[in-house]
Every structure is written in C-alpha cells, then in structure tokens.
Amino acid sequence: MTTDLTLIVTAHDETAVCGPTMRSADLAVAAARAAGLTVQTVIGLDRATDATTAYVRQPRFDHWERWEYDEGDLGRVRNAMLPRTDGRLIAFLDADDLFSENWLAEAVVALDAAAERGERAIAHPELNMVFDGTRSVLVNIPDDSPLFTPHYLYVRHCYDSLCMAPREAHLEIPYVSRDVPNGLSYQDFQFTIETLDAGWRHLVVPDTIIFKRRRDYSLVTESNTRKSVVRSLPAMAIDRVRTLGAGR
C-alpha cells in the first residue's frame, strides 16, 4: 500500500537544536496520523558531524529511519533520498527549524483537494517566522492571489525551501547543485521558478507556520554574503516572466 506522506528531516551540523525540531516533527506526524494518514519518517544525515550523528542516533529517535549520505549539498541529498521514499507526497524539514503541529495534515488536505480539481500543486505554509539570528515574519502568497506577481522573482524568492509536494514534482524537476564559490545558489528558489514554468501551482495552506532559525552562519548567510544569484533561466526572460503562475 502506498504511504500518504514521507517526512524528511535533513541534518548536517546541528546538535541540541535538533531537539525542538524533532519534537515539532513528532507532534505534526502524530496529528497527521490522527487524521488517518500514513506517514514515513526519515532523518537524512548528509556529511553530518560526529556530534550531530550521535545526537540523532539516540534511542529517543529510534522510531525514525536514519539514512546516511555523502553529498554535502542540500539539493543533491534531497534528490538522492527521494527514490528510497514510500510516500506519494514528500515534505522536508531542516534539522534546526520547526513547523506548526497542523502543517502536515492540512497540507495533505490542500494538495489532495488540488488534485481533485485537476491541478498539479506544491504547498507552502502561510507564515514564515524567522528567529534566533534575526526576527521577522513573512507572509507567503499563493500564485493565484491578486498580490502575487512573478516579477517579484527578479528580487527574491516568494517562499522557503520547506514545502510539501507530490513525489512526481521532485522526479520531474530535481534540485540543482549549488555552486556558491561561483555565485550560484538558492536551489529552492530555482525549484520554484522551474515548477511554475512547468505548470505546477504553488498553494499556501492557511493557518500553518514554519519557524525558520537564522543562524550566524548557514548556507543562506554564506550565499547572501557572496551575493549569489539564481542561474539564468529561460522562464525569467523579460518576455516570458509574466506568464509564470496560475492562470497566466
């Protein structure tokens, strides 16, 4: 029988901050299962430090599958894990972030409703609350909103790397590798552009939240410091960009 959802937590150099993350994930998984969903839970250790590996190897996490990789890249490890997963839907969480208890269950409902309407869709939480190194609250805008404009993608990403999508979305459009030394990064940003261009809707699930930890050093801060950009994409050509998004 096909599993409804696979939740993947990716871990690299996190230790104690994994505790709140895993508590958050376990609560959301419990809520999804209470709603009648089947959920596979996996921790992906990608070139994880010894301390991080030791932390997630604790017996308290024995109800999670733990897979080890040597990719050294968030996009590549997600791509590598995908063929081993069981879920018809895939959700990701970084090991230093958290999400609201209702996120998994509500996102599945939203994606199943989209599928019934004949839409290919990817789901995002409504709010992105950034904490720790900085504090801010970002409101995510669905691509069918009057407030959404694809031209905004010239300036910054509309969403975050945390999302839930049918597995075929990731098989159709795998993440690219980052190349920060040469100024190329933001794999999730490129994934959004490429999926919009391929006709995938980007939905926002009301009353759901990601709590995004902004550490002093991370892939995002490194990319920002180096003034990295997204690769040049045909979909962002000035005569095409306006067609990105629902109904365009």
Rank of each mutant, 00 (worst) to 15 (best):
Pro20Ala: 08
Leu244Thr: 02
His202Ala: 02
Leu98Lys: 12
Ala25Ser: 14
Arg201His: 07
Val56Asp: 02
Glu194Arg: 15
Val176Glu: 03
Tyr186Leu: 06
Asp239Val: 09
Phe99Asn: 07
Tyr159Gly: 05
Met236Trp: 11
Gln187Phe: 04
Leu203Ile: 04
Ser232Val: 04
Asp50Pro: 02
Glu222Ile: 15
Ile141Met: 11
Arg214Trp: 10
His202Ile: 03
Ala31Ile: 07
Glu194Asn: 08
Leu203Gly: 02
Ile122Asp: 09
Leu127Gln: 15
Asp97His: 12
Ile173Ala: 01
Arg226Pro: 11
Ile141Thr: 15
Arg135Ala: 05
Ala123Pro: 07
Arg167Met: 01
Pro142Ala: 11
Leu5Gln: 03
Glu119Asn: 09
Pro206Asn: 09
Ala115Trp: 01
Arg76Pro: 10
Leu45Gln: 07
Pro181Thr: 05
Thr21Ile: 02
Phe189Glu: 10
Ala110Arg: 00
Glu172Gln: 02
Thr195Ser: 09
Glu71Ala: 15
Arg60Cys: 11
Met164Gln: 08
Val42Ile: 14
Gly19Ala: 11
Asn128Arg: 11
Arg167Trp: 02
Phe211Asn: 05
Val29Ser: 09
Leu171Arg: 10
Thr243Tyr: 12
Ile193Gly: 03
Cys18Leu: 06
Thr6Asn: 08
Ala169Met: 12
Asp143Val: 03
Phe191Asp: 09
Leu171Met: 02
Ala121Trp: 14
Trp67Met: 08
Gly36Gln: 07
Lys212Ala: 01
His63Val: 06
Leu74Thr: 14
Ala95Pro: 01
Leu111Glu: 01
Cys158Arg: 06
Met1Phe: 03
Trp64Tyr: 10
Pro150Glu: 07
His63Asp: 13
Ala80Lys: 14
Ala107Pro: 07
